[in-house]
Nucleic acid binder design. Structure first.
Lengths: 327, 327
DNA sequence: GTAATAGTGTCTTTCAGACAGTATGAC
DNA sequence: GTCATACTGTCTGAAAGACACTATTAC
C-alpha cells in the first residue's frame, strides 16, 4: 500500500507571517519586491542545509532581516497548482508552507534591509479591526457587494457541488449578518469569501471571473504577492484563537509591562474592545503574571509593572486569556 | 528578499490517519507492509496529476482502499532529515504531510485490500484510554520509568538549550502528575515524551541512545513505520480538540443515532467517561441534533433516534460539544 | 482645583457539574 | 413482577458579563 515515484521537480517554499505589536498596532514584516509589490518574507527549503523546516525558517529570516524569532508555529501547507507561476512555464512546482512567528522587536526599523519593513496588519485587512465598533467599511463597502454576490443564484449553482453552504449562509457565517455574532477568529473564511466574490485585488490578478476592477479592489485592503495575504489571514486567525488558550501574548510583550499595555496588545490582535475590569480579573485569576514591584511614571496615576510568570506553563493545563464576547 | 534554488530532489508524501468509530472502539486504517509492519496509508504527491494536496489524498485513498473520505483536515508537515531513509542513501528527501480523515464505514473490512485493515487506535496508545478510570499501564509501567528518566539530571543538561521546561516539569505537564489534571488533548506531547525517554519502540529503531530493548518497548503500544505513530498522535489530539468546537462527531455517526450512541462515540474518541445528564443537556442546548421521530427496538426502553441538524453550521459561530472535565 | 490614567467592589445571569429520581420497553 | 436501558428535574457553586465607583499622579 506504499508507493513512491517522482515526476515533477518540486520546490518547498517557506513563507513567514512575522508579527510584532507596537503600542496598539499589530505589525507584520513585509518584504517589498523589485516591482514594488508586498509579500511575506519567503525562502526555499534545502534539506541538505537544514535539518528541519523550522530551523530553515529561522535561518533564512535571520539571514534576510537580522531578526531572531521567538515563538514559531507551522500554519498550513499549500500546493495548489497555478500558485506562484503561470501554468506550463516549465518552472518547478512550488509547495509552500506558511508559518506564524512572534517577535518583540518591531522598533528597530532602521536595522532592517531596505526592502523589508513592519506594516500595520489592518492595512491588509481593514474589515478586521472592530476596536472602534463595527467598521464602516463592512456596512458601506463589503456587505452591499456581498449581498449582491449572494443574490446571484446562477453563480451559486456552479459551486454547489463543492460548497456545502449556500452563499447567503456563508455570508452569515463569516460576517454575522442578521444580528449574528462576529467571530474574530474567522479571518481566513472572510478573506476567502471576499476572494471568491471577486472583491479583493488578488481575485482579479488570478483571473477570476466576476472580479471587480483593480482600482476598486484596492479598497478591500492592500494586496500581497502570490497567496501571501491568505497565509497572513491564516496567521491572524490562528493567533487570535491561540491567545485564548496559550500564553502567547507574552511573546509580544517586553519583559515588564503594565496591565493596560497587556490589554491593549490583546485588543490589538483580536481586533476587539475588552472590558477593563473583566480583563484584569481574568489576568488575576489565571495567575499568568506577577508584579515586579516597580511602577511607571507617565502622566496620570502610575501603573504597576508586571512580568510573565513562567511557572504557569507547568501548572495549568491550557493557560491563556480566555477572553469571551467582550472580555 | 525572495530567493529560490533547487538542490536536492524532494518528494512530497501524504500520510492519512483515517478514523472510524465502531461501537465504542475508535479505529484507524492501517496498511501492513510486506515485512509485516504497520503504517498509515501513504502515497506520494504528483502535482501533475492532482491540482491540490487534498484531491491527491482523496484519490490515493480511494485508489488503494476503496474508501471515499468525508471530512479531511491537514495536520502538519514534517521534513526532519533522517526520516524514512537512512542518511546518504541517495534517495530523494521526503517531506511528509499528515492528514486526519473521518469516515463512517469501518465495517466493510472484507472489501478492503488484504494489506489494509481497521485497528483499534488504543492498541497504539494504550495509555490514552481513561474511560475505565486511570489506566493501570500509566501507574505500573509508564510513570515509574519516566520518573527514573526525569531523575537523570545528566541527560537533562544536554537538552536544556532546546527545551524550556525541565524533565520533571514536562512530565507534570503531560501526565498530570502531582494530582494535576489529565488533558486528553496532549496526545502528541505524551508520545514525544515517551519517545525522548526511549520507551517506545520507534526510539530504539531510530537509534536513540538510552532506548529500552525492543521487546519491552512493545508494552508501550504497537509501533508503526517511519513517524506514522507520531502523525497518528497528532491526529488523535486534533480530533479530541476539534470535537469541542466543531460538529465533527457527526461525520462518524450514521444518519440517525441515539443520544447514547453519540455519547459513546464522543467518549471513545476523547478517551474519557462523560456524565450522561450533562452530555444530554449539552446536546440539547447546542441544538446540534433533532429527533427523527422513530425509536430503536433493542432490549430495555427504546431510545429516540436523532439526526444532525445541518442548520447549526450557519447559526452558531463555533458549534461543537464543549465537553468539560467530565461532560 | 482639573485632566488623565490606574485600579477596585459587587450585582446578575449563565452554565458546568453533580445529585437522585421516573419512564418504557422485553421477558 | 424483574431486568435493562432511556430519560428528566433541580440544586450548587463558579465564572462571565456588566454596573459604577475610588485612587494617585502631573499640571
Amino acid at each position: 500500500m506504499n508507493e513512491r515515484q517522482i515526476e515533477t521537480p518540486i520546490e518547498i517554499g517557506l513563507a513567514a507571517a512575522i508579527v510584532a505589536v507596537e503600542g496598539d498596532t499589530p505589525q507584520i514584516l513585509v518584504a517589498r519586491s523589485e516591482g514594488g509589490d508586498d509579500g511575506l518574507p519567503y525562502g526555499s527549503f534545502d534539506p541538505l542545509s537544514h535539518r528541519t523546516l523550522e530551523i530553515a525558517l529561522r535561518a533564512f529570516v535571520a539571514d534576510q532581516s537580522g531578526l531572531s524569532l521567538g515563538y514559531v508555529e507551522q500554519l498550513y501547507t499549500f500546493a495548489d497548482r497555478g500558485r506562484h507561476a503561470r501554468p506550463n512555464d516549465g518552472a518547478p512546482h512550488v509547495v509552500s508552507i506558511g508559518y506564524l512567528a512572534l517577535t518583540r522587536v518591531a522598533l528597530k526599523t532602521d536595522e532592517l534591509p531596505k526592502s523589508a519593513s513592519f506594516q500595520p496588519w489592518y492595512r491588509f485587512f481593514p474589515w478586521e479591526d472592530w476596536r472602534g465598533g463595527r467598521p464602516s467599511i463592512v456596512d458601506r463597502e463589503i456587505l452591499p457587494r456581498l449581498n449582491a454576490w449572494a443574490a446571484d443564484t446562477e453563480g451559486e449553482k456552479a459551486e454547489a457541488r463543492l460548497r456545502p453552504l449556500s452563499r447567503v449562509e456563508r455570508l452569515r457565517f463569516c460576517f454575522g449578518t442578521d444580528s449574528g455574532p462576529w467571530d474574530e477568529e474567522k479571518v481566513l473564511d472572510r478573506y476567502e469569501l471576499l476572494y471568491e466574490a471577486g472583491l479583493v485585488f488578488e481575485a482579479g490578478r488570478d483571473g477570476r471571473s466576476g472580479a471587480i476592477d483593480a482600482a476598486s479592489a484596492r479598497r478591500f485592503g492592500e494586496p500581497m504577492l502570490h497567496d501571501h495575504r491568505r497565509i497572513l489571514a491564516t496567521a491572524m486567525g490562528r493567533l487570535r484563537a491561540k491567545l485564548k488558550y496559550r500564553p502567547v501574548v507574552f511573546e509580544l510583550m517586553p519583559p515588564s509591562f503594565t496591565l493596560t499595555a497587556l490589554q491593549r496588545t490583546v485588543e490589538a490582535i483580536s481586533g476587539r474592545h475588552l472590558h477593563k475590569q473583566n480583563f484584569r480579573r481574568l489576568v488575576e485569576t489565571t495567575a499568568l503574571v506577577e508584579p515586579t514591584g516597580s511602577r511607571t511614571t507617565t502622566r496620570g496615576r502610575p501603573a504597576a509593572l508586571f512580568r510573565f510568570r513562567r511557572d504557569v506553563l507547568q501548572e495549568r493545563p491550557a493557560p491563556g486569556l480566555r477572553v469571551g464576547k467582550r472580555g
